[in-house]
Computed example of a mutant assay.
Amino acid sequence: MKRYIYLGLFTALLFAGCEQKPTLQKYFVTNSENKEFISLDLSPTFINVDKVTLTSEEKEALQAFEKINILAFKSDSLNQNRFNEERDKVNAILKDQTYQQLMKVGSGKESGAIYFVGQDEHIDEFVLYANKKENGFAVVRIIGDDMNPTDVLNLMRLMQKANIDMEQLKPLQALIQP
């Protein structure tokens, strides 16, 4: 009988100890199948580097990079309340101390910010968040292992000179176009 009581207490503590706070990962999973959202998962292969000579810094950045997750909500005149609700959810998640703000631009109708998760030279995730009331918002998660801010800059430079598979990015055109 004591064994069952201890097992019950252990199970209760286990479930009570599980953190139930919202995270971007949970937000992405919850909304990735929602028709109001555009969801993309990109692997490093979307950056075609076959015909590009890579510097050692670019090779290092590419090796640290694992994937990109994109979740976007397209706003229009009919869904402004829903847009505000979803934007507020993302803003609340990003206020958690897990997400450290690196930079913020704009305010009001248009804004953007860059966050990171991890330590300065051991970053596991960069988050790019852009918001424009007329178009919607997008959250981009750049996931890697032991990245640093320079890796992301090198990755962005590499994307400019490499052959990007634009077909994978086609669903985002609806968000970008007015």
Rank of each mutant, 00 (worst) to 15 (best):
G106H: 00
T53I: 15
P44K: 03
F15Q: 04
E110H: 11
K95P: 00
Q101E: 11
N31F: 06
G17D: 05
A130T: 15
S39G: 02
E57H: 12
V90C: 03
D88G: 05
G106E: 03
V105K: 12
V52S: 04
A16Y: 10
I70T: 07
Y129R: 09
A138F: 03
Q100T: 04
Q63D: 15
V49Y: 03
E19R: 10
A113L: 08
N154R: 10
R82E: 15
E134R: 01
L7K: 00
A138P: 04
L40G: 02
V140S: 02
L155I: 05
T55G: 09
L9G: 09
L78R: 10
L102Q: 09
A138Q: 07
F28Y: 04
Y4N: 14
Q177W: 10
Q97H: 11
G8K: 04
E36P: 04
F73L: 01
N31R: 12
R157L: 15
T53E: 15
N131E: 08
E167P: 02
D151H: 11
L24A: 06
M147S: 01
S56E: 14
K2T: 13
Y129C: 06
M159I: 15
K67V: 02
I68S: 09
S77L: 11
L40P: 07
F46R: 06
D41H: 12
